[in-house]
Amino acid sequence: MSDPLLRVERVSKSYGDEQVLREISFEMDRGDVTVLIGPSGSGKSTMLRCVNRLTEVDSGEIYLDGERVTGPDVDVNELRRQVGMVFQDFNLFAHLTARGNVMLGPRQVLGLSKEEARRRADEQLALVGLADQADSYPAELSGGQKQRVGIARALAMEPKLMLFDEPTSALDPELIGEVLEVMRDLVERGMTMLVVTHEMSFARSVASEIMFLDGGRIVERGPPEQLFERPEHDRTATFLRRITQLHS
């Protein structure tokens, strides 16, 4: 198939007078890792949330696997089971164990039996290195462990595309590595990933493309080497310099 997995066409979104996304267009093929960077408030989260329709676009179209996902007649729950999302502040279900968090979707959405859901949850937890924490509750886990459960929870739905919204921004520095490691594994397994992050060395090593968003526009995009070595715009260069200093 030559269809891209994700196609975003001229997507715009405003909150009141503030135009947050201005005619954003991009595509991702299967296995692509696209990293979105940009200053706070530039619309990165909004862009991600439009893809799984936690936020509705004002205009423009989004296609997943050739199917239009914007539009009133689309089953958003069906869309969301194909698109996993990982949140900055984890949002684990506070009343459920790690296993319970991962099982809930397969049970309630995919209709798996308890045993099947449990098996799938334990597989996913093992893949993120948390086999031994399956019975722990979120409040008993470290930030890094929570985020890995969050990733396992999304993966248990066997999504076609994963969205990561600053998955390491809420973590203590020493816990960032374990989450990035899990994400690297995922890249190696061929997952298509749209990632908002300021971990530049991670972006540099895994991204197929980096997009620099500012003021609701894609100011510049390209493979990591190009953006890091030969940015075309001053704004990109300034931003990258600042962010690299901040994180070193």
Partner: peptide, 19 residues
């Protein structure tokens, strides 16, 4: 965020509220 996480894995509103 609890509701959003539930919706993000494809649970409908009622199931998210309930579970």
């Amino acid at each position: 965020g609890q509701m959003e996480a539930a919706r993000s894995i494809g649970m409908d509103k009622l199931a998210s509220i309930r579970h």
